[in-house]
Simulated scan of single mutants.
Amino acid sequence: MDPRRRRHDLLVRPAGAREQRGHEATLRLPAVWADSVREGRTPPARVDGVRFVGMRTAAAAYRLPSGSYRLTSRLR
């Protein structure tokens, strides 16, 4: 992996929940700009249910529905 990128693996669901449906989380991850974030090779804006919230202090924020994600972001 490119040393300028960081990978984040996450699962969105509340602790102890059996099902993964119907829950959301707000994720803020370090990134030089929002366009540098990817879920696999896809920009998050193209992932079903994912919403861009904003960019603030070198971090991109997204609302993610329940599910598993492998996100990468460019750090420099």
Rank of each mutant, 00 (worst) to 15 (best):
T57D: 10
H23Y: 08
E24N: 08
F52E: 06
P44L: 01
G49T: 09
E39A: 02
A15W: 03
R46Y: 05
F52A: 11
A15I: 00
D48H: 10
V53I: 15
A17I: 09
A60I: 04
W33I: 10
G40V: 08
H23E: 05
D48P: 02
P43R: 07
M55D: 11
R6Q: 14
M55A: 12
T72I: 09
S66I: 03
P30Y: 15
V50S: 04
S36M: 05
S68A: 00
L29S: 07
E19Y: 13
L10E: 05
V37S: 05
A31N: 02
R56C: 04
P30N: 14
V12R: 07
R7W: 10
D9N: 02
G22Y: 12
G49W: 12
Y62V: 01
P30A: 15
R21N: 11
P44K: 08
P65L: 10
Y69R: 06
D48S: 12
R76H: 14
S73K: 09
R51F: 05
A59C: 10
E24H: 10
T42L: 11
F52G: 07
L71Y: 11
V32Y: 04
R51L: 05
L27R: 04
T72K: 02
R5M: 14
A15G: 07
P30V: 14
H23A: 06
A17Y: 04
A60T: 14
R41L: 14
V47P: 01
E39G: 01
Y62C: 01
A59G: 01
G67T: 04
G67M: 08
A59N: 10
A58R: 13
V32N: 01
E24C: 01
R74T: 09
R74H: 01
E19Q: 12
H23G: 02
V47L: 01
R13N: 00
R18W: 12
R70M: 04
A25W: 12
T57M: 09
L10C: 02
L71C: 04
S73T: 03
A17F: 11
G67Y: 08
R46Q: 13
R5Y: 15
A31P: 09
Q20D: 11
T72P: 05
S66L: 08
A58W: 08
S36Q: 13
R6E: 13
V12T: 03
D48W: 07
P65A: 11
T26M: 14
Q20F: 15
L27N: 05
A15H: 06
P44E: 08
A25C: 11
R56E: 11
G67H: 09
A59D: 00
F52R: 10
V32R: 05
G40E: 09
R76A: 12
L11H: 06
F52T: 08
L10T: 03
S36H: 11
T72L: 03
L10H: 00
A58I: 00
T26D: 12
M1V: 13
R63F: 02
P44S: 07
D2P: 15
D48Y: 03
R5W: 15
A25Q: 09
G22W: 12
A31M: 06
G49I: 10
L10S: 03
R38W: 01
V47S: 04
A60L: 03
A31C: 15
L27T: 00
V12F: 05
